[in-house]
Amino acid sequence: MATLLDIVTTAAILFAVSAGLLIVFGVMKIINFAHGGFLTVGGYSALAVTKLGWNPWFSLAFAFVIGGVCGMIIERLVVRPLYSRPLDAILATWGLGIIIGQGITLAFGREVQFVQSPVSGAVDIAGGSYSEYRLLLVGIAIVLAIVLGLALNATRLGLVTRAVIMNENLAKGLGINSGLVRFGTFSLGAGLASLAGALITPLSSVDPNMGVPWLVNAFMLVMVSGVSLVSLGVACLVLGGAQVLVSSWGNPILGGLTIVVLAALVLRFRPQGFARD
């Protein structure tokens, strides 16, 4: 039972952390290596909320807004000139991640900080006790998936975005301002990453490098998911579940490799990964 809960909650965390990266990759076809940096921004937004003495729940909205605003500025200044040069964009966003980390070090110091958690402790469930916050994360991830799914599939904005994802030139020809879509998408992706950063603070330490360990797993999950939220969900459950199983039955050091190795194998034998087509 505990293992099952571990799998579901791990998948939920992975989904929350990867969603922003997926959105950006889907529309812009560039891998945003500053994703780890945006996670860190979210963690420190939550820290700011704690320091100001506000309600910890507010940190989620606050982190989303801060991350989104950072995303807007960065899209304008750094990412936009590099749309036609995806390889340079990888380098630029990688460097950007380092700059964000160093900037945060300058502003907040290098040490590990403490953020107040919205809920703490464990609840009794199915004959054992389990971390309340991890269970809560499952709910948050599901809500996140539904909201994103509806936004993409049931709104005019989503329609336009999907048009750009499918065929950008054709969309442009139909009068869709793809530049604006890219701007909106990058900002949304950054906001989501920052939100995820705030979400993981009760589990993680808050330090200038907090986003880095999550980046590689998020990257691999997005690689095997194509551009669909559903396949990202499946990938998180399958690969995250495999990680939990390997960690509990084997050892956690192998568990740390599981997602990366499995993702590489999946792509070798099924290049479209978990996507349907």
Partner: peptide, 30 residues
Amino acid sequence: PMDGTDWTPIISKLKAAKPDALITSTAGGA
């Protein structure tokens, strides 16, 4: 591993083992 952040499977094992006490020795900080 040093850069690992998710201790969940280990904590589940710990809870299943029901020991009297816990002793840890991690890297400092994070």
